[in-house]
C-alpha cells in the first residue's frame, strides 16, 4: 500500500494541477487576509471558500485523475499486489496530495499573518481540520464515481452532481423538511440532518467555534450546547470519520469484485 501511495503522491504533487490548486489557495487566502485585515473575518471568508471548493475540486479532480490513470491501474493490478492495497494506496496518494496543497496554500498566509500566537488559533485549526476531512471524504466519493461509471462524461457529470447535491440540494431538502415540521420544535432534527452531510457539519462546527451561534438566538444556544459540548464534538468527529470509514469499506468491497 505504501509503495502505491508513494508513487501516486509524487506523481500528483508534481502535476500542474497541484501547483495551480496551491497557488489558488495562496492567492485567495492572501487576498482575503489583506482585504479583511482581521483574522476572524478572514476565517469566515475562507470558510465559504473551503466549504465550496474543497468538495468540488476533490470530487471532480479526483475523478479526472482516476480516469486518466485507468490504464496504468490496469497494469499495476496485473502485478502481484492486492487490490485493496492498490486502491487504498492510490486513495491516500490522491487525498494527501490535495490536502498538502490546501494546508500549505491556506496555512502559510495565515501563519505569516500571525495566527499562531493569536487567540484565533483554535478557530483556525478547526477550519483547517474541516478542510482536511472534507478533502479526504470527497476524494473518496470521486472513487465511487470513477469505479461506478466507465463512461468519463457520465462520471464527470455525476461527480458534479454529487458536489451540487451535498452543497446545495441537500440543504434545500433540509430546509423543506424544517418548513414541513414548522409547528414542532425542530432543533434536534436539524442537528441530525446536519450530522448526515459533511459539508453542513463542517460549516456548523466552524461557525460555532467562531461564536456566530449568538446570531442564532435561542436555537443557536441549543446547537451550541450540542456541538460545543464534549459529546457533540466527539459525535461530530466520529461522524466525519464514519464518512471516511464506511465508504472505504464499500470501496474495498466493490473494488474486489470489479472488472478492469
Amino acid at each position: 500500500m505504501f509503495k502505491i501511495f508513494k508513487y501516486s503522491f509524487f506523481d500528483l504533487i508534481r502535476s500542474t494541477w497541484s501547483l495551480v490548486y496551491l497557488l489558488f489557495f495562496l492567492v485567495i487566502t492572501s487576498a482575503i487576509l489583506y482585504m479583511s485585515g482581521d483574522l476572524t473575518k478572514a476565517i469566515i471568508s475562507m470558510m465559504n471558500v473551503i466549504l465550496m471548493l474543497i468538495p468540488l475540486v476533490s470530487t471532480v479532480f479526483g475523478a479526472i485523475y482516476l480516469y486518466n490513470s485507468r490504464e496504468f491501474a490496469e497494469l499495476l493490478l496485473a502485478q502481484p499486489i492486492k487490490r485493496k492495497s492498490f486502491f487504498l494506496g492510490q486513495y491516500l496518494g490522491l487525498s494527501i496530495s490535495l490536502t498538502v496543497s490546501f494546508l500549505i496554500g491556506v496555512g502559510l498566509p495565515f501563519i505569516f499573518w500571525g495566527v499562531i500566537g493569536s487567540k484565533y488559533l483554535s478557530n483556525f485549526l478547526v477550519l483547517m481540520g474541516v478542510g482536511l476531512l472534507l478533502g479526504f471524504i470527497f476524494s473518496l466519493l470521486s472513487y465511487w464515481v470513477a469505479l461506478r461509471f466507465e463512461n468519463r462524461i457520465k462520471g464527470f457529470g455525476f461527480a458534479l452532481f454529487i458536489w451540487l447535491f451535498m452543497s446545495v440540494i441537500y440543504d434545500g431538502i433540509f430546509l423543506l423538511i424544517l418548513i414541513w415540521f414548522e409547528s414542532y420544535p425542530t432543533e434536534n432534527l436539524a442537528i441530525i440532518l446536519t450530522l448526515f452531510n459533511p459539508i453542513d457539519l463542517g460549516r456548523v462546527l466552524i461557525m460555532l467555534f467562531l461564536d456566530t451561534s449568538a446570531l442564532m438566538g435561542y436555537t443557536g444556544a441549543v446547537f451550541y450546547k450540542f456541538f460545543g459540548a464534549l459529546n457533540g464534538i466527539l459525535i461530530s468527529s466520529m461522524t466525519l470519520f464514519l464518512w471516511i470509514i464506511i465508504p472505504v469499506f464499500f470501496l474495498v468491497r466493490y473494488a474486489n469484485k470489479k472488472d478492469f
Binding site: M52, I179, P185, L189
Partner: peptide, 18 residues
C-alpha cells in the same frame, strides 16, 4: 425572514443554499 419563522433553520446560515 425564514429564520424568524423557523428558528432552527438558522443552522443553515452561511451555506451556499442561503
Amino acid at each position: 425572514r425564514i429564520i424568524g419563522k423557523i428558528p432552527s433553520s438558522s443552522i443553515l446560515m452561511r451555506s451556499l443554499l442561503i
